[in-house]
């Protein structure tokens, strides 16, 4: 046995080292993996609460409608009716939840550019979707000089 071991001793030492490393891994795993890991799946359950604790930035269209019912009414029947207010006006939770919302008025979007985000001509868009080449369409002025962004159809 001793004879057999003599030239394999270094291998045995490496084997012991690996076994030790495996033991360290298992101990580290037992100590470091959060206790609530895996309760509902392969994730830390506490991550849900962490995410819920993030401050809200979007108010949601219902919050907008609470005060701006005139705008909601003006959008009725328009192709823009279903677009969220914050898609153009930006995140408004700070404005909606402020004690004095008028003190935190959001900046109006730059209509010369924001309309083109959706309506610039692009071959990838369906043919029936209203799309324009700004060089050919309008007279170079803001889109709002002809279109009401809340009800853009020109009758």
């Amino acid at each position: 046995m001793r004879e057999w071991l003599r030239d394999r001793e270094h291998m045995v030492r490496m084997g012991i080292l690996f076994a030790g490393a495996l033991a360290v891994f298992l101990v580290a795993r037992a100590v470091m993996v959060p206790k609530d890991f895996g309760t509902y799946g392969h994730f830390r359950t506490g991550a849900l609460a962490d995410n819920m604790a993030h401050p809200l930035v979007f108010a949601g269209r219902q919050a907008c409608g609470d005060c701006h019912d005139d705008i909601v009414a003006s959008r009725k029947g328009s192709k823009h009716e279903q677009i969220g207010c914050e898609a153009c006006h930006g995140a408004l939770e700070a404005h909606a939840s402020a004690d004095d919302p008028s003190a935190l008025k959001p900046k109006l979007p730059d209509v010369k550019t924001i309309c083109l985000v959706c309506h610039r001509e692009n071959v990838a868009k369906p043919a029936g979707f209203p799309q324009v080449d700004p060089k050919d369409h309008g007279d170079g002025g803001p889109c709002t000089s002809c279109h009401n962004p809340h009800h853009p159809e020109i009758s």
């Binding site: 914050e86 898609a87 153009c88 930006g90 995140a91 979007p109 730059d110 550019t113 924001i114 985000v117 959706c118 610039r120 692009n122 990838a124 868009k125």
Partner: peptide
Amino acid sequence: MESLLHSVQGYI
């Protein structure tokens, strides 16, 4: 949001 939208084309 608006500044981000400028780097976008079409529906996203």
